[in-house]
Structures are given as C-alpha cells and as structure tokens.
Design a protein around this nucleic acid. Structure first.
Lengths: 217, 217
DNA sequence: ATAAAAAGTTAGACTATTCTAACAAATAAA
DNA sequence: TTTATTTGTTAGAATAGTCTAACTTTTTAT
C-alpha cells in the first residue's frame, strides 16, 4: 500500500494530468514543494511499482493502476470536503486543508459512512466530480463563463483552482454554486464581464476570474 | 511541533502513566510494537525536547509540558471517538482504530467544531474523560464492579482496556454505559459475579471482566 | 544551426525512524 | 551473596524521503 508521501505524489500527478495533458518532473516538484531530484527519484519509485509510466526525459503519466489509486485518494478527499461542508458546517474555503490530511486515513468504513450520510454525492463543494468506489471519474462537460456571450443566462456549476483566496473572493461577491448568472456585457478590451444575479446584484469580473468559473446552460 | 511518531510515544507514555504509576522502556516498546533500543532512543529525543524526564536505568515520566501535549492528543482521540459514535453512527467497538489516525490531524478548527457539535462532551464512548483545551483531565473516581457486594445496585460508568474484543463481548451481553446493574451474588471461589439488569437479563461475569467494569453508585 | 537557457538526471549526503548484535546495570533467585 | 535473568543501553546499519552540487539532455532563441 502506498505511503502518505506516495499518495501525495499520485494525487498531484492525477490533478496535473487533469489540468494540463502532459506532466513534467518540474511541475510535479513545484506542486509538492520539493526539489526536482526528489520528485525524480520518487517518480522512479512509483514507476517500479507500476504506478507511473516513466522514460528518461519524457513526460510522465499514470498507469491505469496508478490512475485508480490516485482516483481513490481523490475520492476520499472530495467526500471529506463534502462532509465538512454539509455535515459540519464549514465554509467551502476552509475544507481543502483539512481534507488534505483526512484523505490519508486508512479506513474504508469511515469513508463509506460519510458517503452514506451524504447520500452518495457525485460532486464536491467546488463542483469537482467525486470518483466512485472503483476509481471511475466522470467530468461533466462544463463551459467556462469566459466563453459565454452577452445576454446568456447560465448556472454556476463548478470552479477550477479552488484556492482559499479565490473562494473568499467569491464569498465576498455572494457567488456560490447553483447560482443563475446573466451576462450583461463583455469588455472587448480586456475580456472582463459585467454580470447580474440574485436580487439586483451586479458585478464586474476579470477575464481571469471568468476563466475559472465553469457553468452549465 | 511533535511528529506523528513522537505523538504516538507521548500518548503511550500518558496512557501507561494512567494505568501503572511507573513507566519502563520495555512496556513502552511493547505498546508501540517497536524494539527496546528504538523506544530508548526516542525517549532520549523526547527528553532533549523537554517532554520526558529521563535518567539512565530509571523509570520514565512525562514533564508537565509533555503531559499537556499528550493530553491534547488524547483530547483529539476521545473527541473523535465520541463524534464517530454520536454523529456517524459507529459502534463503540469500531471507533478506536479510526480515532487512532484522526487524532494526528493538525487543525484545531476541525476538533473545535466536533466539540461544538457534540456540545462539549466530558467523556468518550468508553467513559474515559476528555481532556479540556488546556490539557487538564479530571478522572471521575469510579469503583470497580469487582469491589461491589452482593445486593448492591450500581451504574456502569466506564470501562478500562477497551479493546474491540472486550467491547464486542459486552455488546453480546447487552451491557452498555449508564446501565443499572444489581449484584446478585459473588462466587467466593473465583470472584465471578452473578448480576441482573434491564428486563430480566441475568449473566455471570468472570472476575477479570468485573475488574474492567467501572461503576458509580 | 549553434549557443544559451531550461529541464532532467546522477551522485552523494543528511535526518528520522527503525532494526540487530553486543554489552552493562539492576533485579530476582538460588 | 553470588549467579542468573531481565531490563536498559550503546554501536552500527538499513530505509524512506529529502537536500545540494555537478552534469546531461532537450528546448529555445538568436
């Protein structure tokens, strides 16, 4: 069974593969805040265990086995986040740090019980899918708010890069998942958007923010 | 801050000090399932950190600082056990293993929230006291069932040595905390007790079991 | 197309935690 | 009280995960 550290590498590899297609050793080392030689030697270790495809100087990828192990850790992480929000009353900006630790707990009963109490949720508090018990993940095909046209009304479905700062920013603007948003206009100049939502709320969102907001129609 | 391993040593030292007065290196190594030299070197390390009183060939003890750190870990453990039973519906025989891992989570907010949701419990599901935020512990002065006389009616208040096997044994006999028990008779021969409780339940308990059941009048 | 920069790799060392083997001190038994 | 046994300690080594320094390969830019 994978160690605490190995689990963190697997998870990072999985998340990086989701964001970018290809994974480099330096990106990995960056995410995990270790030196490149450290990441390099761990990648070799995971390779020997059949969890990572590795060839010198080539981009990294997870094997099916590695992908499954990683997905199961992420399942634990996202179930935990959901539990912390739904059952313990934490704000969605607080839960990542705590889940980061709880995800390493070795007790299937514990996570099964969470799953049950939450009635088998399929997404976490940030709209990311919760992998199932077999490690299968279904990403709903969301669009970015940034790609919407003026006049469109859409629902906020998920966010990417859910750092505490970004989540606090959304809190301040009363933006939460499920919210209906109307795109009033778009600045051709910098891609910032004027939106309206709820009762008379109006905001201007920078293109960077709009890139991170995923919506459905 | 203490590492995962150091925390386990502190906790073991605290629990041993509770049970026996004096702590030896070999008891410690036994509890933690490591060799005596391993325990020995860790004890020295904790001594350097001012957490353990250590003199060659002398019994071990925690310093006030070590006692406080240990109590705070045990607080997290017992709060977790209570939460798992009360809020997640686990049986009292299942929670030790899970709490053993969760107690190492570094998030005061997480445990504070548990404490709040449980409305500041003072005992865990096995009747052991939950140390307060300052690391203070108040052991209620319970008697052993073994010391009761025939005819006495007492309340089951806590159990010592709460291993999964013992707890399952109690489950099978429908014995749980808070229960009123009447001592019908005691075998002079081996100290086993005949007791009655609930609606017409009668059982014979061995002296060993009676030693482990703590009661109040 | 070659030089400069960036990314990846190897070598060697350090720390924390663990072990076994060998030895020393304290305790128990004859 | 002297010996035997148990307990505690020291020494030395192994492993996982980390680092820096030095070197190689690949990529980028002139």
């Amino acid at each position: 069974m994978a160690s605490y550290t190995e689990e963190n590498y697997l998870k990072a590899l999985f998340n990086l593969a989701d964001e970018k297609g290809e994974i480099s050793v330096s990106e990995l080392s960056n995410i995990l805040q270790v030196s490149t030689p450290t990441a390099n030697s761990m990648v070799k270790n995971l390779h020997v265990q059949g969890l990572v495809h590795y060839e010198k100087y080539k981009p990294l990828s997870l094997t099916p086995k590695g992908k499954k192990e990683a997905a199961l850790i992420i399942r634990k992480h996202r179930l935990t986040e959901m539990y912390l929000v739904e059952k313990m009353g934490f704000g969605w900006e607080k839960v990542h740090e705590i889940a980061e630790q709880i995800e390493h707990i070795k007790s299937t009963a514990f996570f099964d019980r969470m799953d049950e109490l939450l009635e088998h949720p399929t997404i976490d508090p940030h709209g990311s899918p919760i992998p199932d018990k077999q490690g299968r993940v279904v990403w709903k095909s969301y669009q970015k708010l940034a790609d919407c046209k003026p006049g469109e009304t859409v629902k906020l479905a998920a966010i990417t890069n859910s750092s505490e700062e970004f989540l606090k920013f959304l809190n301040n603007k009363n933006l939460s998942l499920g919210l209906s948003i109307k795109v009033e206009s778009v600045e051709a100049f910098d891609g910032s958007m004027h939106i309206s939502y709820s009762k008379n709320q109006r905001q201007t969102l920078s293109a960077l923010v709009c890139e991170r907001l995923l919506i459905k129609v």
